[in-house]
Simulated scan of single mutants.
Amino acid sequence: MKFILKAVVIVAAATVPGVALAGQCPAGKSGTDVRADTGAPAKGVTDTVLTTIDVASEPTAIEGRSFRMRRLVIQPGGVVPWHSHGERPAIIYVQQGTITEYASSCSVPIVHRAGEATAELHNTSHWWKNTGKTPAILISSDLLKVGADGKMM
């Protein structure tokens, strides 16, 4: 009886919706610059800025930065082209669908599923592709540089 109860608890815990750890590069597959830019252009992506905060005027007083939240909808076969987070740390939350990441630090593709979140740090360069059959929706929050003219860079 205890074994059955324990099994039920384990299965229930595994199926409760919530934020899961994002897909990660498998052991032995990570490295520095193990994947290069493919040059694939943006395709099938809608990028909508939801809101921004000028963090220089907030108590954090981070000069030259804006905190931005976007909603990206990537259609099946759609591509978010190669980009770097060297100057723009971000957090991505997969709201719907499945998206595949091709990172410079991993020799194999990394699959991210709905309910997962992942950090994009200064050493992250990558591109994304929706290899699924339904649109993938990502919520992206980043700390963006702002130029002297006040425009986001």
Rank of each mutant, 00 (worst) to 15 (best):
H112N: 11
G97K: 11
L138W: 07
T124Y: 10
T134D: 15
I99D: 03
P76W: 10
K133Y: 00
N130C: 09
A119C: 09
E116C: 08
S107Y: 01
P89C: 07
V73Y: 10
I92W: 07
G86H: 14
S105G: 12
K133T: 14
P135H: 02
L138R: 04
P81T: 06
A90W: 07
P76Q: 08
V111C: 08
I139T: 08
I110W: 08
A114R: 11
T131W: 01
V108G: 04
E116V: 07
T131N: 15
E87K: 15
L138I: 10
A119Y: 13
K129H: 03
A117C: 05
S140N: 14
I99R: 06
I99T: 03
W82K: 03
T124F: 11
W82C: 04
Q96V: 07
R88H: 07
E120I: 04
A117D: 01
T124R: 13
T134M: 11
H112K: 08
T124K: 11
G132Y: 14
V80T: 07
E87W: 09
Y102W: 09
W127K: 01
E101C: 04
P76T: 05
L138P: 01
I92C: 06
P109M: 12
K129Q: 15
V111G: 04
R113H: 15
P81A: 10
